[in-house]
Design a protein around this nucleic acid. Structure first.
Lengths: 379, 379
DNA sequence: ATAATAGTGTCTCTCAGACACTATCAC
DNA sequence: GTGATAGTGTCTGAGAGACACTATTAT
């Protein structure tokens, strides 16, 4: 497959020193129906400053502003053509090539570049007229054109559930920054160098809740990648699910930003229920996932403290599933469970009237067989 | 959180012109317990060639080989320190900065850089001694340094299953390009501009199998993000699962590259079973996922042609689960299934001896309740 | 004692699994 | 007829669900 004729090109190289050659190449491309994203097709008004200024550039913009705008144009074009008469590559062009190469974009050169630290692939040295034909497909070209690849910023967002006041609650933070400022969102953040998504999720969990990630289950849910899901650009978010006992404190979040445990049904369906980005969708998925995970795994114990009663555990199921279970049957099923769902201790809890319930500990089992049946019941 | 004291640093800058300063900085870092990945701590043997040669460099290596090795070291270090006395940034350094910046790595400068097309963030200009303290955490640092973010290339890899000769098979392609060249891998590719991961997966599925993605179930499995999972750099792959009826042809793949339906058990456990990248792991996850999906959803019908017999369907379960099922019980369970798992037609299939089996069509249901029980059986 | 909660006994109904049996074809 | 495959009947045992009942505490 080749790039369609209606593609776009960015030209890079020293506009100051080789402007005639740049213009000539640009004209070749526009004549062929391609869009030239950079440089603009207009007069140079100031070639004395560090960066060449065109008529279309706002006079009040700084050099760095102009460069940032140029970078943006380069990154959004389908391919990059380096105009380098005599092989000359300037410092700025070298920097741009580093960025562009790192993104895996398609790059062609007018002449063999000098002083570049990398070897240029065979067949990428081609004059503008020939490149047009290669793009159009009438010339098979010296080498196949590398298709443009997307470069994205990966993030991890976490759905952290707990049970508070016998209700399922999720940790939400109020956004302090620009997009969706002031709205509620799931905690999360960008992946840092050397981190995996799981590492990022663990770090964020620790930062938001103070929990050292060692004991907490952290499960990957789904990756959300709609191109327009984040107005800041191409941000791909992987959602994780974490489950923890009672809100330990009112979450004195490490950041100054506000964080709170919100009742899930309310945050999904109540008034003011819309969350930032697509986090409403993520939360819904997280809830549904948790509901089915309670059937087949022993996650429910992760909602409980170290020592818990069977009733505590039942309350978890009732909060997540949204309806009541028969206490007797639940008790039998859980305790008689063959594998180690729960482990009996010799302690009891004495608080209030009634027979003091026995205390249990988490078992070693992860999967529940036979599963806890949810059936198809009404709330 | 700060970078741990046992981190690694790569120094960049003109080794030829500023070697004393580079050495001094390197010593500062090593004395503090940090690993200096580049340059090597040894004598320069040849400073006349285009790239400075160190004693530890193999003499037969080309300039580009050396540069590639240096890039590798830079990319695998925790942060980059630019030694630029007088602000000088050379062409090579500019290129390296482009790459490194595009990756979102942490970069610090010894002095304010000149002639760089980008604005350097506040607080990244710091001398080596001070940087050591910032890293160790004893000095909070001159200004809040922007937490480095990773920039990654998202890809979609697809586990495409089918049943051939009553065995579960997966589509694998033989890699024609550099990393893991000649090895088997899952089909997949990079996300293109404007595409979601699902879009990429659909496109790849179409390109590899000729199937228009409309009718095919495509389910997201998991996202793999270990930093070192792909030697080409930060590539994050989201795995998808697709299921289709019989190999339609021997897969005349659009690309010239070889593609084949491989028996799953063999490709996982047989000799020559190792797949490229972490695709073995992905395939194992895909298989396990499919096994449990057969219990709870109607995916099994996706393995069958438009019209199929109950025995066809049973063969699917047997191939995926790896053991035989009782034909009678299976038949009753499937046909009596309340929801629309399968829909009876008035046609029968006449081929060979025996009572001609009735033909069924896919029902509308997606979920199976009650599920098909897999129990815990031996193969 | 009374109220309250924990935990057990018991019955019923459904369904998975085993397996024998019948049905319907090719030859 | 024989051999083969499709499909049904029937029994058994495990377990979910309903609910009554016992056990053990605070007040």
């Amino acid at each position: 497959m080749r790039i369609s004729t209606k593609g776009s090109v960015a030209l890079i190289g020293s506009f100051r020193q080789h402007y005639p050659e740049v213009r000539a190449a640009a004209r070749t491309f526009t004549d062929a129906g391609l869009t030239v994203k950079s440089p603009p097709i207009c007069r140079i008004v100031d070639r004395e400053r560090e960066f060449v200024r065109f008529e279309s550039d706002p006079p009040e913009a700084s050099d760095h502003d102009l460069q940032a705008a140029t970078m943006e144009k380069i990154f959004t074009s389908d391919l990059v053509y380096v105009v380098n008469p005599g092989g000359y590559i300037g410092r700025t062009t070298a920097y741009e090539l580093g960025c562009v190469h790192e993104r895996g974009m398609a790059v062609y050169y007018a002449e063999p570049p000098k002083d570049l630290p990398i070897a240029v692939p065979e067949g990428t040295i081609v004059d503008a007229r020939r490149l047009v034909e290669i793009i159009a497909g009438s010339d098979p070209g010296p080498a196949p054109v590398r298709r443009p690849r997307v470069s994205a910023q990966p993030t991890a967002d976490i759905v952290i559930f707990t049970i508070g006041s016998e209700q399922l609650r999720v940790l939400l933070v109020r956004r302090g920054k620009k997009p969706y400022r002031g709205m509620l969102a799931l905690p999360g953040g960008f992946v840092r160098p050397g981190e995996s998504l799981e590492g990022t999720a663990k770090r964020e969990l620790r930062e938001e809740t103070g929990l050292n990630g060692s004991g907490v289950r952290l499960e990957q849910l789904h990756t959300y990648s709609r191109p327009e899901r984040d107005p800041r650009g191409r941000i791909i978010s992987t959602a994780f699910l974490a489950v923890m006992p009672d809100p330990p404190e009112v979450t004195g979040a490490s950041d100054a930003r506000e964080a709170d445990w919100v009742e899930v049904e309310e945050s999904l369906w109540g008034p003011n229920s819309s969350l930032a980005f697509d986090h409403g969708e993520i939360l819904r998925h997280g809830l549904e996932h948790t509901r089915t995970r309670l059937e087949h795994t022993t996650v429910a114990t992760a909602f409980c403290d170290d020592l818990f009663t069977i009733t505590d555990l039942r309350k978890v199921y009732e909060a997540v599933w949204g309806y009541e279970l028969n206490p007797g049957n639940f008790h039998r099923k859980v305790v008689e469970e063959t594998a180690g769902f729960v482990v009996r201790t010799d302690k009891v809890r004495r608080s209030g009237p009634g027979k003091p319930p026995a205390l249990f500990r988490r078992g070693t089992a992860d999967l529940l067989y036979p599963p806890m049946m949810r059936g198809r019941r009404a709330p």
